[in-house]
Simulated scan of single mutants.
Amino acid sequence: MKNIAHLLPESVRNGAYTYSGYMQLMEQVVLENRTTGPKQSEELSHYTKLNLARMQRLNKKVTVSDSLKEVIEQIDIPQTWYILTEAWCGDAAQNIPPIVAASLANPLITVKLLLRDENLDLMGAYLTNGGKSIPKLIAVDEDFNELFTWGPRPAGAQMLLREYKANPVKPYSEFAEDIQRWYIADKNESLHRELQELLEAVAVDK
């Protein structure tokens, strides 16, 4: 079991957001017509505004399957789910609300959000194919032993991205709309199924 205490020093943990705190941050940067992270542009500010609306919508309507709830309710050790994210990230906007909704099934789970570009050491340890793809979920126990990781997107969406990168026949802005349509049709079912499989594997390894 990998211990990542060195990647989560007190300074990093103190800088983490609760989910409500992260939503307040999103609202603040949208009011200021900007985004999180060092890179600022009208395009990123626009995506951030869209993401806030998506997250607010998902917060109200996202549901968790009974099978996933059952697995989460069986967790018997305190654990923290750290999520690396940025406000401009469309995949984060789609996946963080259902992750948080799932975590609420057990009070032993604490969700903390970290901005990717303020935590590059942690991000560097969890690259996807060499890239700083987000969101990235890293679950640890009280001693900072890694329990499981997930991200940056469900397998179906990841496959669409791989296909697009192999043959980018349309502007990325159009592909981003395709991904959003995939999320709408999927209704978070893939994410919750993948989370359930990860949690069941952790339970078997105990």
Results as ranks from 00 to 15, higher is better:
I4F: 11
L7C: 08
L7R: 02
P9E: 01
N14V: 00
A16P: 03
A16H: 03
A16G: 04
S20I: 06
S20R: 09
G21Y: 10
G21P: 05
Y22A: 03
M23P: 01
Q24I: 00
M26G: 08
V30N: 01
T36A: 09
G37D: 05
P38V: 08
P38A: 08
H46E: 14
H46S: 12
Y47N: 06
K49T: 13
K49S: 15
N51P: 03
L52A: 11
M55P: 05
R57A: 14
R57F: 15
L58V: 07
L58E: 09
K60C: 01
K61V: 15
T63Y: 01
T63W: 02
S65L: 02
S67F: 06
E70P: 00
I75T: 13
P78T: 04
P78D: 03
W81R: 00
Y82W: 04
L84Y: 04
W88D: 11
W88L: 13
G90F: 11
G90C: 02
A93M: 06
N95V: 07
P97S: 09
I99P: 00
L104I: 00
A105N: 04
N106T: 07
N106A: 03
N106K: 01
P107F: 12
K112G: 01
L113M: 07
L113C: 04
L114R: 08
R116C: 02
E118P: 01
N119C: 07
G124M: 08
G124L: 10
A125I: 02
A125R: 04
S133I: 11
I134F: 02
L137I: 09
N145D: 09
T149R: 09
T149Q: 13
G151D: 03
G151V: 11
L160K: 14
R162Y: 14
E163F: 01
K165W: 05
S173K: 15
S173E: 15
E177W: 10
I184F: 10
S190M: 08
L191D: 02
L191E: 02
R193D: 03
E194V: 07
L195A: 03
Q196T: 05
L198G: 04
V204P: 03
K206I: 13
